[in-house]
Nucleic acid binder design. Sequence first.
DNA 1: AGCTATTACTTGACATGGTGAATGAAATGC
DNA 2: GCATTTCATTCACCATGTCAAGTAATAGCT
Lengths: 396, 396
Amino acid sequence: MLGVQGSPDIVDSPSLTALGPAARGVVRALLLGGPLTRAELARRLGLSPASLTKTARPLLVSGLVSEGIALVSEQRGRPGAPLVLDAARHQFIGVKLTADEIFAVRADARGRVEAGQSAQIESAEIPAVLADIVAMVNELGRDQRIQALGIGLAGEQTRFDDTVRRNNYLGWDQVPLAHLVEEATGIPTVLSGDARALTAGVQWSGPGKGMSELAVLTVGVGIGLGIVLEDKVLSGPNGLVGMIGHHRISDSGPLCDLGHRGCASSYLTTAAITAAIGVPHGRVDIDLAQGCALAAEGDPVALRVFADAGRALGVIIAQLVNILGLPAVILAGDGLELLTYAEDSMQAALAEHLDPVARHPKVVAFTSGFDEWARGAAVVACQWLLDPPRHRYTRP
Amino acid sequence: MLGVQGSPDIVDSPSLTALGPAARGVVRALLLGGPLTRAELARRLGLSPASLTKTARPLLVSGLVSEGIALVSEQRGRPGAPLVLDAARHQFIGVKLTADEIFAVRADARGRVEAGQSAQIESAEIPAVLADIVAMVNELGRDQRIQALGIGLAGEQTRFDDTVRRNNYLGWDQVPLAHLVEEATGIPTVLSGDARALTAGVQWSGPGKGMSELAVLTVGVGIGLGIVLEDKVLSGPNGLVGMIGHHRISDSGPLCDLGHRGCASSYLTTAAITAAIGVPHGRVDIDLAQGCALAAEGDPVALRVFADAGRALGVIIAQLVNILGLPAVILAGDGLELLTYAEDSMQAALAEHLDPVARHPKVVAFTSGFDEWARGAAVVACQWLLDPPRHRYTRP
DNA sequence: AGCTATTACTTGACATGGTGAATGAAATGC
DNA sequence: GCATTTCATTCACCATGTCAAGTAATAGCT
């Protein structure tokens, strides 16, 4: 692009915030459902055809939406003109903040990653971290108009949050991070829990695209859980949702670091698995890949550990499905490698613990890089902008 | 036979269906929050004061709402005039349908029961049951204008359903019961799952009144679960929610009738408890009250059975709170008597299995008669009428 | 080809529900 | 008695959505 930093010749697509709630609803539906005719949109949004004509007009004029060519119709009557959304027109930035590292990506409205970077955190002091974030955001947003910025971090964040509450990793408490970043960058900013951000990414543009109900279960350093109900990522009144890490799976079993016997963490975290495999072999420095290699060689210890892990996964999935009636569960996280040797026992445990009346859920493994977490945060930012505001009125 | 709707000497308060969505919102808030000033309503509904003046006017004119006297103000400025809702003005009927009996109550909008009756079901044939229901409804609705009718039954019903899907108790499948009853009585009718109806009753006018998030766990013949999230009773995509009856509590434990070892049903259903107490004593005809009596005498078998039941309850509550972040769990059902001797172990198990980060929930026992189920169905009918319609448009 | 049924879209009059700004009303605190 | 604070109203205006009516484009049938 020709433009220099901050120059006026950036293509200035109108901000999504300028759209009314009706238009946002249309954009949201198009984002999730691909090109759709006005008639189909009207049906999905529960509006009259007349409304859609009216709502779509300004979107067409602005160029955000354009009319495609009618498909070969298998219908009887006049074919509809599909509306196609120019999702690449709007950019978002997603940031995943951990105790020692920051990941950030720039993505378009559909969640396609355009650029990304990462940096180590030198100090957990608020001004230092803030400066790091701002530097990365400015770098990624150079010569781009960024619609919104999403930050995902561990802890008790609600779906669209603005302050960091009790973050043990960073040692922060009650930090108005969204406001700080917004002031420094000029970009509207929202916070979210990291598991919730990952879930949002899965739901809008990952393997769960278009599903209204699903759960995302992550295994790795810890166990994370995100739940989508009625198209919305659940966050609970305090952001305290999905604390499934210490669910008891079995009365007899290994101990987790909190002293629970047979809890989910004791079977599923990477540390638990590597320790369980390594100790009987007299090795403490084993990693997950080595554990998998042992299993591949037929090592009985490794096979048993993975089988137990699979069983734990199956029990958790069954509980979720029984309680919430979910039709799909997505497995993710950097410990997902274990699934190779755990899938059979997982399926067996799932079948055993599923309620006889419940429908068998679709279970999908979603292998992804670490930037998936940051991408999820970008999706959260997009969802935030397009969210139908419940409370429009802010008193003076 | 036609309903009594047409009789000319009924005080004809305008139907709630005539209210627009804005007015319904006000009525709903007043129903849940008692008398509220316009200013407070505006804050709760996220509207401007101007909106409230406008919305409240027709309600005041119609007499459904009247202005109370300002309370002794502890505020600084002008005291607001509380709007009080005349909840007794609108009647609803709730019906609980089981395999062999029908319970029905008439209640006002606030869920206060005005009358009730029950009848045995002679035959499970659809026309026979329909006739029974219609007769009871006509009897309860005599000389009254009934706003809506709610029917609660076991099975895979969604929150506001219209057809009975796969009901094993009655042997029905795909019966458009709501439509049939509506035609025969002239009263708008809605179906709901029975656990969901009970939950609705708890949420609107029971011990959970005013709470936005809670779960209702029932013990008795089976184990039921209803979940409220963001003020709405959860029903899932297929109405398959809360199938918690066969969750595994322990590897070792009694068998349930499906052959699961140590599942929730095997610890908590009344049949399981009475059998567990009775068999060691060589008695098969024991009931729950007798079991309690034995426990009161210090019978070690009974005490142990109740302690195990309490532990199962505690585990289930902990799981629910961990996953959903619920601040409160209400216990109900006709088997609740067991709690007298199970509470300690329940609390212990809850504390043990709750995630270290999770907030300890409020656990409340809600002892109630059998008509609580029918009352819940009446509340569902009221919620249904006052629900903000997502899809207003019905195409011609 | 021409007709009919079917589905898609547009138009304009109208209703509803919401806002902001200005104003008035009723209490407390000094 | 007066400032302050909070509550409520009024009026002009906007956004969204419906209805009824009409136009447009296709498939299938005769």
